[in-house]
């Protein structure tokens, strides 16, 4: 079940959904753009993008080890300048959301109600109309996730598209998951530490 904006904000109040910084204002108000639609909230583009460098290499996901290193070595980081970054037609870059998303599984409310939250990142129609995809294969944000969301941005349009820091570029849709997934072992071990402290050993 998809959460409405009201239910999304309730989940944020209860700590079942954490979006940091909190998208504001929470309600439409004069002179400020409300980031909430009926069942989604806009996410902004962060400061940094990663630009893959062309080369003679071939991505082979069946080749074991070092794939993350390989991707890193063949891309360069760029802090988006104040004037923006012009994404050329057919150009592909990675971006990050400005917001950090957290979907804690072990929240007391979740346990009581045998549920938890997952989310999806989707594009925005205004951005899509310019030919821009902000994700094209990996929209799922799993329960238990904590971090910024990586955006796979590609310009399918005929003209350059300006990427600017803090621009609303994607939207987050939050869903309720039936049941609690196996996120962590239900066993404890000698010497194991938990956020609240050492459990023994």
């Amino acid at each position: 079940m998809i959460l409405s904006n009201v239910e999304m904000q309730r989940a944020m109040e209860e700590g079942r959904l954490v979006i940091s910084p909190t998208p504001e204002p929470l309600r439409p108000m004069e002179g400020r753009k409300c980031p909430y639609d009926t069942h989604s909230v806009n996410l902004m583009l962060g400061d940094e993008i990663s630009i893959p460098e062309p080369g003679p290499y071939i991505f082979d996901l069946l080749e074991t080890g070092s794939l993350s290193m390989f991707l890193s070595r063949n891309s360069r980081k760029l802090t988006i300048p104040p004037e923006g970054f012009a994404l050329k037609p057919s150009q592909f870059v990675l971006g990050l959301t400005l917001e950090t998303i957290s979907l804690p599984v072990n929240h007391a409310w979740n346990k009581e109600n045998n549920t938890c939250l997952a989310a999806r990142v989707e594009g925005r129609s205004s951005v899509a109309r310019c030919g821009i995809l902000v994700h094209f294969t990996a929209p799922t944000i799993h329960p238990g996730f904590e971090g910024t969301i990586t955006l796979e941005i590609i310009n399918l349009g005929p003209a350059k598209f300006m990427l600017r820091r803090g621009m609303p570029i994607a939207q987050l849709i939050v869903e309720e998951v039936k049941g609690i997934p196996f996120e962590r072992s239900d066993r404890t071990f000698v010497g194991q530490t938990a956020p609240e402290g050492r459990t023994g050993g």
Binding site: E48, S50, T64, G65, S66, L67, S68, M69, L71, S72, R73, S75, K77, L94, L96, T148, Q192, T193, A194
Partner: peptide, 30 residues
């Protein structure tokens, strides 16, 4: 809870590292 040995490379973003570790089978993971 625990720390395992890894090789660390720069990530694609400043907020991440590219990490490579070894499984008990000898295969690497990243």
């Amino acid at each position: 809870k625990y720390d395992i040995r890894c090789q660390v490379f720069p990530g694609q973003f400043s907020s991440e590292y590219s990490v490579e570790g070894q499984q008990s089978s000898g295969d690497l993971f990243s």
